[in-house]
Amino acid sequence: MRFHSFAIAALVAISEATTPDVLHRNKARQNATTASERLGLEWLGGNSSLPKVLILFTGGTISGGSIYGALDDTQYGQLSITGETIISRNPYLLNHTQLAVSNWTTDGNGSTGTNDALVMNMTRFAHDALCSPDSDIDGAVFTHGTNSLEETAFLMDLLVNCGKPVVGAGAMRPWTHLSFDGDANFFDSVMLAASPESRNRGALVAFNARILSAFWVTKLHSTNPDAFWSTAGGDLGIFINSLPVFFNSPSQSLWKHEFSIAHVSNHSTYPALPKVDILYAAREFDGKLVLDTRANGADGVVIAGTGNGGIPNGSAQIKEALDSGLQIVVGTRSPYGPSSPSVKPSYAKSGFLHVIQARIMLQLAIASGMGMNETIGLFEGRFRTAIGQEWTPGR
């Protein structure tokens, strides 16, 4: 693996030969006065007065190329470029910012699209870099494959909450394509992370010249460059001349819960998150699938229900699963609209959260020690207050 984490950094320091260069670097980190020095970040750009933006590089289509020519945008991946190469492709970046690259790519051990532990380690690293008392960093950008960019963006939105922007960047076309969108998306993301106007808005996604909230963002098109949209809340702004223009003053979702990264990291699944599966409901839905997730080690399950969070069949099996300790959240398979609270709930309804985001929220709830009733309150509390449908466990 080639990714940074505190434990791995320590192991590397121990295993490296004690050359003068290594001893000098270790001593410099021990005497560090800033997060940049302590984390060993090397800044590109000669103007120390410019904003510092940390690049968390995980690869993705933005770094992928094709051997099949400039028209291929489906079979790529045989070629790759580094974060430093992406920066070098746009000479304007270092006229506006200082950039440091932290690599989170892996060799044969999964990616940010498949590995919760890797994403959590990167999120902890970002939290330390941005939110520690010695932080000298203004914001961060993480590159990501678009298939699961929304998952990492949502996770960071709930865990990195010190006001500094974290921005997701990606591409729908490989860098070998004749109309590669990655360079523009990356530049916009860096400008967004560097902008003081981005503060206190939570995590963000910059895609196709649009500014989106990480809390609401989802991928609605599998191949189009304008792939990402908001399931609720709308766009936060746009890019004009590759600079961010916001529509409103800073605010965040009323539905958002800020979790303690330290508390979540104390869970037994560390460095990963509790296992939560997703099931898709349709006519003849088999409730035994819920029990199967429990038997397979799941702590929770999110069901993409029909319509306003309906489940066609399986109520007996769902009750059995709940009695066994499985936590259940039911959303809607519809791309827009809520899964509304039940009058007397036995499991949580996801409200306006997409099932992908609901899975991450449930993982964090379980890792934070919440039981089913607390999880119901987490997902439904503000919704119930808004519609005058208060609920107290046991009544």
Score class of each variant (00 low, 15 high):
residue 153 A to W: 03
residue 71 L to D: 15
residue 379 F to A: 11
residue 124 R to P: 10
residue 109 N to W: 08
residue 79 L to C: 08
residue 222 S to N: 09
residue 369 G to Y: 03
residue 90 N to E: 14
residue 330 V to G: 07
residue 191 M to S: 03
residue 209 A to H: 15
residue 118 L to H: 11
residue 242 S to K: 09
residue 42 E to D: 13
residue 127 H to Q: 13
residue 216 W to F: 13
residue 282 A to E: 01
residue 159 L to N: 06
residue 104 W to P: 00
residue 328 I to T: 05
residue 290 V to R: 07
residue 159 L to Y: 12
residue 84 E to G: 09
residue 249 S to V: 09
residue 324 S to F: 02
residue 349 K to Y: 04
residue 81 I to L: 11
residue 307 G to M: 12
residue 320 E to I: 04
residue 25 R to H: 12
residue 82 T to H: 05
residue 98 Q to C: 04
residue 139 G to W: 13
residue 35 A to F: 05
residue 149 L to Q: 05
residue 273 L to V: 05
residue 284 E to A: 09
residue 272 A to W: 08
residue 150 E to C: 03
residue 42 E to Y: 01
residue 278 I to Y: 11
residue 96 H to T: 04
residue 28 A to M: 12
residue 272 A to Y: 00
residue 90 N to V: 11
residue 148 S to Q: 00
residue 131 C to I: 09
residue 70 A to S: 13
residue 169 A to C: 07
residue 196 P to M: 03
residue 20 P to N: 09
residue 216 W to G: 08
residue 5 S to P: 02
residue 301 V to K: 05
residue 366 I to A: 06
residue 293 T to Q: 13
residue 80 S to V: 05
residue 156 M to P: 01
residue 217 V to T: 13
residue 384 R to N: 08
residue 115 N to C: 09
residue 264 V to F: 01
residue 394 G to I: 10
residue 344 K to M: 01
residue 12 V to W: 05
residue 363 Q to K: 02
residue 252 Q to P: 06
residue 77 G to M: 06
residue 129 A to F: 08
residue 104 W to A: 12
residue 46 G to E: 15
residue 365 A to W: 03
residue 270 Y to R: 02
residue 220 L to M: 09
residue 292 D to I: 13
residue 301 V to M: 01
residue 159 L to V: 11
residue 359 R to Q: 14
residue 185 N to W: 04
residue 242 S to E: 15
residue 19 T to L: 14
residue 85 T to P: 00
residue 29 R to A: 15
residue 111 S to P: 01
residue 243 L to T: 14
residue 318 I to R: 11
residue 110 G to R: 09
residue 224 N to T: 04
residue 125 F to P: 02
residue 260 S to I: 11
